[in-house]
Amino acid sequence: ETLLRTVGNFSGNTLHVEGVERPFFEELDARDDLAVIYNPMDAIGVEAADALRLLRSGSFDVMSVQIGMASRDEPFFEGIDLAGVAPDLDAQREAIDAVRERFDERLQERFNAKLMTLWPFGPQMMFCNGDIQGVDDLEGKKVRVFTPSMSRLVQGLGAAPVTLQFSEVYLALQRGVADCGVTAPSAGNNGKWPEVTDTFVPLPLAYSVQGHFMNLDTWNRFDAAQQQELTEAFARLEEQMWELAYDVNDDAIACNTGQDSCSDHQAYDMRLVEIDPASRALVEEIASEAVLPVWAETCSRQYPECAQAWNETVGDATGLSIQ
């Protein structure tokens, strides 16, 4: 019987953690050849940014990894979720599938870990206060962001990016320290952000890509048949997470903005801002000019072929390229 010490996602993401992850690992635990100890990362105080190190050292066997945070130790991984690159979830999925193999190679080589799943929380959108009719009205607003590329994109839109700790965001929005906060519609709904904001801006800035990685030594202890079964099981987990990203966020948008189709989230009455095609074009332009080049420069310091690898995978799938 192999023991899998597992760290799950943040417990605040109830739908993912209680709805999918915990049942999935309980199912694995029920297998005769596996025993699983599962804890959400905040239940035991694991920092999301440490994930790659904890996997490499074998502190844990399986971890739910927030790519944006973990890319602290590997900038190439951030390339999967750069702000403004993918216009919608379908495009994001194509990009992920295109880069999956290259990602796994690098993960195995540098961090002694194997890629099991890759999936997004969903489109990262803005919960705002104030009179906002379109992207132009973001000018001068204080927007709470949490990744370097998101900060550059928001700056390109004329807003002032502000960094705050996640646990302070609710209060910051309530008191006006920040005018807008960025997160997935469902996460914002669960975090009760509509209680303290009034305007919903459905412009996807990024997708908050997550993954499940397994320590490579642990993986190699399984025989071929077990590896096959685990691969299939994790593929099902990934599929469930993608379905969540699609279904849940549409419902969450409906609920945040008080539409009749709202069913599974708390209903609020935020005003829904219309996003015109010109806005998307503007976002893509900022991504090409301000986000990609800066990221490529950082990334190539650790990985000289970075820009090329990105162009061949994510870039190819989304029609963008780094010069």
Binding site: E47, D50, R53, L54, S57, S59, Q165, S167
Partner: peptide, 22 residues
């Protein structure tokens, strides 16, 4: 009960606990 690797992760835990704006 858990083995040395978890003890080694104390460095990351120490940095994570201290490096906290709150």
């Amino acid at each position: 009960y858990l083995g040395p690797p978890l003890l080694y992760s104390f460095g990351d835990a120490l940095w994570g606990t201290l490096n906290d704006f709150i």
